[in-house]
Nucleic acid binder design. Structure first.
Lengths: 347, 347
DNA sequence: TGGCTCATTTAAAACGTTATAAATCCCATC
DNA sequence: GATGGGATTTATAACGTTTTAAATGAGCCA
């Protein structure tokens, strides 16, 4: 452990642009191997050496070269998130990513995004990532009961966390929102306000959470013994104008619904607009209870009752679970079901 | 150039998990160097060899190892996008990223996102990326006239494209929206509808495009010789409720504005809500012309006139410009100013 | 002192690619 | 029949890290 004079230190620093293990080795007099070990806190390194190496590393601002680490270890230190085009609206995707990034802070992991250009579960991207080891873990939303992406990942033992559940018998990590409870509670509130014919706007049928929402809705409806309606023509993924037009048409017909459980803020706004085309007023002729994922709706339309889904928290939990899964941690609970905050939260 | 029998081929394939240059070399009988050259279409390789190597590579699904390439060349094949928390609303950030990803398709570039957790231009993230060569190029929004990030990047010759301009004398690549024209046109429309006291809701003053908007607004106002008002208490980054409350308060006072140029859809909705608190109706007592970046507003509130800003296109152009900048292409125009589509586009 | 163990440290190889420099080969030319 | 040169191909050395196996040194007992 040579005590390097200042001049030598700066000379060594100047010669090499970016500090590497070699730089620290030259500076301390240790071998590269020792430096590597000291920095990764390997047990066989003496406390004194470890301390000295850490000091020098901090001083010269050493940062391990990601490419070299990745090449050697096979670990990429990359988490990949698959982004669906439907996540564009109202910051859905960004909130999730923000939460993810929060969980990944102070870890070596980087977040790379792969937007899905084609519609539906993009199995090709997943296969590509798995086959070529492009990431250490995968995150995606909008699962289907027998989602081919989940099957592929399970078969290959590739770490991932879904936002949404499946119906495979093999359990896998997920962080999901309890959409049954949401729909059940939302519908009960509508009925509680005296509405006798609630309608629910569902996501496309193929997705798992569509079934959960439907189930919650039907449970509430049957318990109360009221009528109900489920539109076939529209879903939460439809363009705003289609939902609005549908509501407008429907309002003009007989036996129009008098309550709406909306799975998203946009569909709630579209419903209000469509209904108002026929002079129907929110709070008077009908009510809405909607899922709230941003601050927008409840501020713009305080008459819409909302139940909150915290997507940033969801993202953060997904990150946490994925890191545990990658680390092979068996103690962490890998399946998280987030309960709706049904206690009328204020923004 | 040995013609390898099938059995040997499969044997070689089996031995090594992931195909590498070595695999192709063994399969074709060429040296690793030759294979590398053939795949990168180096001029000194014979057409015949090149063809054969490409064939085999395609057949076994060879993909170059990113880590090895990065280690050797120093190029990361990564584009980093800095995400501001204010980009959360209405899919602003996601649209941009979608466009970016579109430009990066069929290139080796991956898109990594770094959300900004602290408020304001986060120079630390930029310094970290530059110093440690974490990416080949950088993308960010919400520039300030003398944005420290731009200065740092210019000083280091690091490739980047901003969404927004600066006032540095050294030119740098940007893709911006002509916010002067937007504000000018929006205000003229308000005046054209007979409004005599327009108001504009601006982004925080420190950002360059705030000045552009202000300038456009003032030009229109002065040309027409009408009154105007510019609120000091609120800006486009404010939470929805603050804008709504402000509008509500302002509507109650004397000489309330009768026209609003809104730089975002959310502020437009908040304005409508705030005004309606005092029984003022859009289209009757006042008008709004707003910037439209999603399908939401114009469908929900057809009475709000909108002028479109295509953020997906913006992202795509930014990607295109950045790739050209990285490639050192001098012919590509590095400064793009997107004109508002003032011709009353339909969604 | 020699031999043994345990605690540290080290040298060398490897990950998969590209760059540099050197080696072939083929053919035309003297 | 050598000589030179252009066209191809190749061996070797890196890039910065981790891993494997080997070396060094100190302490201890015989």
């Amino acid at each position: 452990m040579a005590d390097t004079p200042k001049s030598l230190a700066s000379e060594i620093m100047l010669k090499s642009g970016k500090p590497t293990l070699r730089t620290i080795a030259d500076l301390t007099g240790f071998a590269v191997t020792t430096v590597s070990r000291a920095l990764s806190n390997a047990p066989q390194i003496s406390a004194e050496t470890r301390k000295r190496v850490h000091e020098v590393a901090a001083e010269i601002g050493y940062l391990p070269d990601r490419a070299a680490q990745r090449l050697k270890t096979g670990r990429t230190n990359v988490i990949c998130v698959l982004l669906d085009p439907h996540e564009e609206i109202l910051g859905y995707g960004i909130s999730l990513m923000h939460g993810l990034a929060k969980a990944l802070r102070d870890t070596p992991y980087h977040l790379i995004v792969m937007p899905n250009f084609i519609n539906g579960a993009n199995i090709d991207a997943v296969r590509h990532i798995v086959r070529n080891g492009m990431a250490d873990g995968l995150i995606f939303s909008r699962t289907e009961p027998f989602d081919p992406r989940v099957r592929l990942l399970l078969e290959n033992g590739f770490p991932f966390v879904t936002h949404g559940r499946t119906e495979f018998t093999t359990p896998h990590p997920y962080v999901d929102y309890d959409n049954f409870s949401f729909a059940y509670e939302a519908t009960k509130r509508l009925i509680g306000r005296g509405r006798r014919k609630p309608m629910i706007i569902l996501p496309p049928k193929r997705m798992t959470f569509s079934q959960h929402l439907l189930h919650g809705f039907m449970t509430a409806v049957r318990e109360a013994g009221v009528g109900y309606e489920i539109p076939d023509e529209i879903n939460l993924d439809c363009p705003v104008e289609e939902i609005r037009d549908f509501m407008s048409r429907r309002a003009a017909q007989r036996d129009a619904p008098d309550g709406f459980a909306c799975g998203g803020e946009v569909s709630a706004l579209a419903t209000i607009t469509g209904m108002s085309d026929h002079g129907l007023t929110l709070g008077l002729e009908y009510d809405i209870v909607a899922k709230r994922t941003s601050k927008l709706l409840s501020q713009i339309q305080p008459k819409v009752e909302t139940i909150y889904e915290d997507l940033t928290d969801t993202g953060e939990q997904m990150g946490r679970v994925l890191l545990a899964r990658i680390a092979g941690d068996e103690t962490t609970e890998m399946q998280v079901l987030l309960k709706p905050q049904i206690s009328f939260p204020t923004v």
